[in-house]
Design a protein around this nucleic acid. Structure first.
Lengths: 257, 257
DNA sequence: AAGGCAAAGTTGGGGCTCCAAACAGGCGTG
DNA sequence: CACGCCTGTTTGGAGCCCCAACTTTGCCTT
C-alpha cells in the first residue's frame, strides 16, 4: 500500500535497542578500553551465539556493523580480528572536537581541555541559509555562535543555524552537549540524523574572525560548511572556521564491508 | 582453528559478483539516469524478489546497501523512496574527479571534461613517506605525478606513493584508470581497499605548484594527504593540491543505517 | 456524507539452515 | 626431516520463515 509520495514527517528515534546492538556495544567497549588489543581475535559467530545467547543472525549482524565501523577485519576461513589504528577510532563518530588536530605529534583527544562559549539568538534567514535549510522566503532561524577553546586558546569558531522552533520543545542543553556535536543534540530532540555533508574551502579570514582566533596577518582559514540531514531534509547547518596554519581536518571513510 | 595472529597477506577481491550487488547496480543505474526520480518509490522486498528472481535476503540486503549509500530512505510501514540531493550522488563513490567541485552553480559531473597527465618514477622514500606507508628505513617507492585538467585548464596536482613492486605484477593501467581513483586501480591489482583517510590543511603553494596550476599570487591551496588502507596496512598515499579559491572538497557521511 | 476501523502491505529485527571458498592444524608419506 | 593432503572451522552469500510496528487503503457504520 503505497500510493502517496513520502510522508512529510521527520524520523523519530526508536527507543528500544535491538539485540545485535547490545553485542556491538559490548565488543566495542572491549576494544576501546583495551580488553581486546589490536590483532586479537574476536569471537566467531558460533561463539557469540553461545556467549550472548543470541541467534546467529544477530551475531553476524553485530560483526558486520563492527567491520563497517572499521574496528575489526574479517578474514574468510580465519576469523575477525581487531584492527590497528586505534587513534582514528573516535573520528568515525565525527565528534566535533576530534575534528581538528593540531600539527606536530598527534596528541590524544584527552590531552587538550576543550571548552565552549556560545550565544543564541533568533534571526531572519539570509537567502543563503534559507537555501541550505530548504526554507521558504523570509523564514526565521535560531542562530548560535560558538567559540571553542583548547586550553583556553581559541581554536575554532562556528555559527549554527536551525529552523526556529526546533530546539524549544526539547530538553535543556547540557553543559557538555556541544562537545558531542549537533547530531547528539538533535537526537535528544528526537531527530535522527542520517547524513552529514561537509564542504571544505579555504579563504582569507574576516576581521572579526582573525580577531576572535588571534590570527597573525596573512594566515588563511579552513571554512567548513556542514549540514545535518534527517531523511531527505536538512535540519541544521553551520559554518565552521579553523586556523589553516595550525589545524587540519581528518576524514576517515570505511569502504563498504 | 585460529591460533596464529592475522595472516600477513593482503585482501584479494573476489571476482564473482554477489547476486545482491546486481540488484544494487540496477537500481543505482535507474536513479543515476533519471528513471527513478527523487521521491519515487523503490520496489519493495517482495517486488524485488519477483522482479529479479532473487531471494528475500538478497533483496533486503540490496535495499540496505542503497540506504547506506544515502540513495534511498526506508520508512517503516510505507516503503523505500529515492532521496533528494542527486548532485551529491557520485561522491559516495569517491571518484577522484568528483572530489572537488567548482564554486558557483554545481555542474553535473559530466559537464567538465577531465583529463590527466601522469609521470611515474622509482625513488627512495623520504622519512615522511616511509612513515606514512609504514616502511622501514631507506625503502624504494613508486612515485607518480598527476596533473588533472578540466577542459584543458589545470585544476589539481597529485603525487602518489606506493611500495615499489606493487604495480608491476598487475595488468597495465588503462587510459581512464586514474579518473576512477586509486581504489579502483588497487582493486585491479587484487588489493581490496578497506579504508581511506584524508587529512586536509591549507597552505601557501610552492613556486612549482602555483606555476603548474596557473595561480595568481596570494592564492592559497588546499592540501589533502590521503592514504588508502587494506586491512591494517597502508598501500598507497598521496598528496593532492587544489586551488583554494576556485574549488571546495565535499565529504558526505551516512550515519549508520 | 463523514468518520472510524479493519485488512493488507511494508519495513526492520530476529531465527534457522545450507553451501562455497578460504584457512589452520594435524596426520601421513616420501 | 620435509612436504603434501585431509579435515574441521570460519566467513560471507543466499534462501526461507516469523513477528512487531507502522502506514495506507478501502470498506463499513453512524
Amino acid at each position: 500500500m503505497r500510493r502517496r509520495p513520502p510522508t512529510p514527517g521527520m524520523d523519530i528515534v526508536a527507543t528500544s535497542d535491538p539485540v545485535y546492538l547490545r553485542v556491538v556495544a559490548d565488543i566495542r567497549r572491549q576494544i576501546v578500553d583495551g580488553s581486546l588489543l589490536p590483532g586479537a581475535p574476536v569471537p566467531s559467530r558460533a561463539q557469540l551465539t553461545r556467549k550472548y545467547g543470541v541467534g546467529e543472525t544477530a551475531a553476524r549482524h553485530a560483526l558486520r556493523v563492527l567491520a563497517a565501523e572499521g574496528l575489526i577485519v574479517g578474514r574468510v576461513g580465519s576469523g575477525h580480528y581487531v584492527r590497528a589504528q586505534p587513534v582514528l577510532l573516535p573520528l568515525h563518530r565525527w565528534r566535533l572536537h576530534d575534528h581538528h588536530v593540531p600539527f606536530g605529534a598527534d596528541p590524544g583527544p584527552e590531552d587538550v581541555r576543550v571548552t565552549c562559549d556560545r550565544r543564541s539568538e533568533t534571526a531572519t534567514a539570509t537567502p543563503d541559509i534559507a537555501l541550505r535549510l530548504r526554507l521558504g522566503g523570509c523564514a526565521t532561524v535560531a542562530r548560535t555562535h560558538y567559540v571553542f577553546r583548547g586550553d583556553g586558546r581559541p581554536i575554532q569558531l562556528a555559527t549554527s543555524y536551525e529552523p526556529a522552533g526546533l530546539g524549544e520543545s526539547g530538553p535543556g542543553v547540557g553543559p557538555d552537549e556541544h562537545l558531542r556535536g549537533p547530531a547528539a543534540r538533535l537526537a535528544a530532540l528526537g531527530i535522527k540524523v542520517t547524513e552529514i555533508v561537509e564542504q571544505v574551502r579555504t579563504r582569507v579570514p574576516q576581521p572579526a574572525e582573525s580577531d576572535a582566533l588571534a590570527l597573525p596577518a596573512g594566515v588563511h582559514v579552513l571554512h567548513v560548511e556542514r549540514t545535518h540531514w534527517a531523511g531527505d531534509r536538512p535540519v541544521e547547518t553551520s559554518d565552521i572556521v579553523i586556523p589553516g596554519d595550525r589545524f587540519r581536518l581528518i576524514y576517515t571513510h570505511a569502504v563498504q564491508q
